[in-house]
Amino acid sequence: MSETLLEAEGLHSFYGSSHILHGIDFVVRRGETIGLMGRNGMGKTTLIRSMLGHVRPRHGRVAVRGKTMTGSAPYLIARKGIAYVPEGRGIFPNLSVRENLLMAAKPGIDGRRDWTYERVLETFPRLGERLTNGGGQLSGGEQQMLTIGRALMTNPDVLILDEATEGLAPLIAKEIWYIVRQIRATGIATIVIDKNHAAVTSISDRNVILVKGKVAFEGSSAELRAQPELLHKHLGAG
């Protein structure tokens, strides 16, 4: 079995007194694509934020590359090769497109520099046309591309996409999915959170469904497709 890059064990997280995650186990191995699904408010974002150090879990353990990093500073976890494209717009509106990308540039954990400024612009030609524009002047789709491109500039081993296509026109969303496939093909492990379950399962190796802060299902896309009642029950999909 390939190396475990990111791992949560028995994670319990709270916002104030509301108990959001109820003992979640979650693993990301090198190169795999995981679909993380669940209805609104089930704890997907909280799980990610708990693993990345933005939310300190009350119980349980987070390990990055086998090393316990529960509640570590987010920048230390990020430096271990974990990149995050957050829900909503993660761009810096007061920086130009070029600056958004350049400020993030760093080699991967093994010194790799696969993703350079030039390569990101090749992958997202639209960004190349808007280099001097302020991040805030971009369309929603372009902003999302910029956030993904910026995450790639850190040469990660794990890329977490939280609702990357939310609110985008279908054609733009399709473009994003195409790019996610490309990224996946380069061997970067990805966690994909998205409302479009068909699109998620078409690229994912494994899927996790959260219901009220617990893992309700875990299995391959084929297993999930074989149980349409699960999709209906947990995701409200057809």
Binding site: A83, P93, L95, M103
Partner: peptide, 18 residues
């Protein structure tokens, strides 16, 4: 750039390993 970025979204800057 990092300083300016921090003024708009501190958490995101951290997520880039900074």
């Amino acid at each position: 750039m990092m300083i300016r970025a921090g003024s708009s979204n501190r958490e995101m800057v951290q997520s880039l390993g900074i």
